[in-house]
Nucleic acid binder design. Structure first.
Length: 792
RNA sequence: GCCGUGGUGGCGGAAUUGGUAGACGCGAUGGACUCAAAAUCCAUUGAUCGCAAGAUUGUGAGAGUUCGAGUCUCUCCCGCGGCACCA
């Protein structure tokens, strides 16, 4: 047989699969479903590097396997094309984002197709398609109508470089996650989503998810629940007729320490609020508050390493023991945590202790009481707090979904009626950010000016756009109804048809979701939030979108650094495929190591996978109609069928491949490989190396694709050999092995051992007892030697 | 600091969940084939000692449980990730 020409074979089979429509998927309630999902990419201008497809290869293998097992498998792909990366690329290259996105998608798609994925491209979606974002807008309106979207003028995170407001989730170490600029606090009008209303459910439902522990833990930390008690301290020396504060409310998780309180510490933010409400404080106090607030503003609300404080002169009463304690303004209490005021217990809290020492404050040795006694004695109220903040949902950028609201002087904020959706992103001359805090859309007056849907009077469109994450909050739903989506852009009457479709709840929830860990506290929280809202509204019938999640480990460049143009260490899959083939690439990425673990790319190491495929190619020459396996190889054969299936389910692709190699190594030793055995090997390998296996399958005389075959079954009775090798230990030390019959009992093994001269010297001392583990080992405990060297 | 996760040859990694540590692959060394090279095939390949048969040692460190520990328990050390003056 001539050489294995991967280029010719792969191109030919990719075309055949396309012509044969073998990857087409449809709603079919007669079959059990399996929804396998990849986190869809942002189609950047850079194209894919070899790290990107790792997850896609895994889901491809998984979904091919599930399909062969008889599941109706949905495994779609699409494009998350709104947002800053696409827009910045467009600005830099001076093309309209729409054009840039189309080009980038075409490139990404060509790269993906070369890898031989089984995506049904008829389910493809694109978040920037008006037919798609019509529904993103529609869901936003559902949130708005439910009171979960609201306007706010609170200071938010502003990235001076991206010139837009950001959500907490978009920050990394106080910097813009996208560009690394220091983020400022800026008061501006914002649309917020009330994700905090769902904090408890988002937290509680984590427990039931089959997700990696680290992601679940990240989400728990991010939601940051703390259970504590609210306690009120009356202020005693406040002049009753003035506007001076009358009481201070503190939040504590340690009511049991209430008798040890020696002062109250309040944040400068709370003190400022008092001043705004008319508190008559001294100049010194006012200046101190200003000083602390100034520090925080310029240091982006970071921690000041040095504790500072100033006594206010105010005294408050500890409700537990009626003792008066002084109230201090400090820089170690945060304004946006708890109530912005802390009951300080220097005896039990390190921070309070440091502060008390510095300012010579009392440190009480009052004993701890029970939690209940602390609450009862102080009249505290059990309270739950979360670190999670509401989601800043508007962006002052062009390339996002317009928020479908109209501002009317008479009627206030009004929803765009469903029949008028989508609110299409207008064409503009300049889509660069304005920097004024207004979106570029604000300049397009004939788009902005409209009529109020309620009163018919003058109305102005909301000009902020939605964040990057909006489109990905429901794309997994969109795939299930993608053909309806396309037909409905102009059809305004079918309002809820998409979200009442039976195929939607046939496919949902996603059974296997695969992507990177970087989405732990962004996309994966946002999507869960939207999903729960849709669940409450009755559109989806299961409260979680993704029941099972796997993270692929990061593929690093050959130099051990993250693949990036900057380091010049990017490997393009196209090049690898040209040289070695897509099947080799697929095998290598799965063989590199455990799927969820990262690893360093090595083009050199790929040669091993290529050799493996070539060995199979050559094994074809040894295939014969007749011929049988000896019993040992037959056992191995059955074990391999079992293991490959189990490993795919567990995402242990590296060991699945290795077990196939072991079997192939064995088959190579034969003078003739039985045809049915070889065919089974091809089927087992088909999800991993779809092109080569289909080619050989065809050469064996099959007219239909190997990918339409059923997954092979193994013979339960042929998983253990008749003859087996067990290990022999003497006093717990390995001393050799011995061949026994599979069902030999302890006595038989022991007898055989005693007659084996190889072990005579170890057993000379005499056998005290033996531990026999069937099919595993026998451990002989010898009699201890006596002082005189004898054993009797 | 709290939480999570990991640490095994020159390298990537296996190990039936307490039972032959290093499967499989890369690399390396020696050999066969070849005018030669590539490819392929065969052999060896944790370390130490030994001509050898073989012995000793070995899974981040130390203790423990057990006939037996990479695996279980305790105490540490280091890497990675999340949260963090969070009251």
């Amino acid at each position: 047989m001539k050489e294995y020409d991967h280029q010719e074979i792969e191109a030919r089979w990719q075309k055949k699969w396309w012509d044969w429509d073998i990857d087409k998927v449809g709603f079919d309630p007669s079959k059990p479903k399996c929804y396998v999902l990849d986190m869809f990419p942002y189609p950047s201008g850079e194209g894919l590097h070899v790290g990107h497809p790792k997850g896609y290869i895994a889901t491809d293998i998984y979904s091919r396997y599930q399909k062969m097992r008889g599941f109706n498998v949905l495994h779609p792909m699409g494009w998350d094309a709104f947002g800053l990366p696409a827009e910045n690329y467009a600005i830099k290259n001076k093309v309209h984002p729409k054009v840039a996105v189309a080009e980038n998608i075409a490139y990404f798609k060509s790269q993906l197709k070369k890898i031989g994925f089984n995506y049904d491209w008829e389910h493809e979606i694109n978040t920037t398609d008006p037919a798609y974002y019509k529904w993103t807008q529609w869901i936003f309106l559902k949130l708005f109508e439910k009171g979960l979207a609201y306007e706010s003028w609170e200071p938010i995170n502003w990235c001076p470089s991206c010139q837009t407001g950001l959500a907490n989730e978009d920050l990394e170490d106080g910097k813009c996650e996208r560009c690394g600029s220091m983020v400022e606090k800026k008061p501006m009008r914002q649309w917020m989503l009330k994700i905090t209303d769902y904090a408890e459910r988002l937290l509680a439902d984590i427990d039931g998810l089959n997700w990696p522990e680290s992601i679940k833990e990240s989400q728990r930390n991010w939601i940051g629940k703390s259970e504590g008690v609210l306690v009120k301290f009356e202020i005693t020396n406040s002049k009753s007729e003035t506007k001076n504060p009358k009481e201070i409310e503190v939040f504590t998780t340690r009511p049991d320490t209430i008798f040890g309180v020696t002062f109250l510490a309040i944040s400068p933010e709370l003190a400022k609020k008092w001043l705004d409400d008319g508190w008559e404080a001294s100049e010194e106090v006012k200046n101190f508050i200003d000083e602390l607030l100034q520090w925080r503003a310029t240091n982006n609300f970071k921690t000041d390493p040095e504790k500072k404080g100033l006594a206010t002169g105010i005294l408050a009463v500890n409700p537990a023991n009626n003792e008066q304690v002084p109230v201090w303004i400090t820089n170690y209490v945060l304004g946006d945590v708890g109530t912005g005021a802390v009951m300080a217990v220097p005896a039990h809290d390190e921070r309070d202790f440091d502060f008390a020492q510095k300012y010579n404050l009392l440190i009480s040795d009052a004993p701890l009481v029970s939690r209940e006694e602390g609450i009862n004695s102080s009249g505290g109220i059990n309270t739950v707090r979360y670190k999670l903040k509401d989601w800043v949902f508007s962006r002052q950028r062009y390339w996002g979904e317009p928020i479908p609201l109209i501002h009317c002087e008479k009627c206030g904020v009004v929803s765009v009626p469903e029949k008028d959706l989508p609110v299409v992103l207008p064409e503009v001359e300049h889509y660069e950010p304005t920097g004024t805090g207004e979106s570029p859309l604000a300049n397009i007056t004939d788009w902005v000016n409209t009529t109020c849907p309620k009163c018919g009077g003058l109305g102005k469109r909301e000009t902020n756009t939605m964040p990057q994450w909006a489109g990905s909050c429901w794309y997994y739903i969109a795939y299930t109804v993608s053909e309806k989506l396309k037909s409905q852009i102009t059809n305004s009457k079918v309002s809820d048809l998409i979200f009442n479709a039976s195929d939607l709840n046939y496919w949902l929830p996603v059974d296997m979701y695969v992507g990177g860990t970087e989405h732990a506290t962004r996309h994966l929280i946002y999507a869960r939030f939207w999903h729960k809202v849709l669940f409450d509204l009755g559109y989806v019938s299961y409260p979680e979108p993704f029941t099972k999640l796997k993270n692929q480990g990061l593929v690093l460049g050959e130099d051990g650094r993250k693949m990036s143009k900057r380091w010049g260490n990017v490997v393009n899959p196209d090049d690898v495929i040209e040289l070695y083939g897509a099947d080799t690439l697929r095998l290598y990425e799965m063989f590199m190591g455990p799927f969820e673990q990262g690893g360093v790319w090595s083009t050199n190491s790929m040669i091993g996978m290529r050799r493996f495929l070539e060995r199979i190619w050559r094994l074809m020459d040894k295939v014969g109609e007749v011929g049988t396996l000896n019993s040992e190889t037959e056992v191995l054969f059955n074990q391999t069928i079992k293991k490959v299936g189990e490993d795919i389910i567990a995402f242990q692709f590296n060991t699945a491949i290795s077990s196939l190699m072991i079997l192939v190594n064995k088959l190579e030793e034969l003078t003739q490989a039985p045809k049915n055995v070889f065919e089974t090997v091809l089927i087992l390998l088909a999800p991993f190396a779809p092109h080569l296996t289909d080619e050989l399958w065809g050469r064996l005389g099959h007219a239909k694709s190997i990918h339409l075959q059923a997954w092979p079954k193994f013979n339960e009775t042929k998983l253990i050999s008749e003859q087996t090798t067990i290990s022999v230990q003497v006093n717990g030390k390995m001393r050799g092995t011995i061949n026994i019959k599979h069902d030999d009992g302890e006595e038989e093994v022991l007898n055989q051992l005693k007659n084996d001269p190889a072990f005579a010297k170890w057993l000379a001392k005499g056998i005290e007892r033996a531990i026999y583990v069937p099919d595993r080992l026998i451990n002989i405990i010898t009699r201890p030697l006596l002082d005189d060297g004898s054993n009797k």
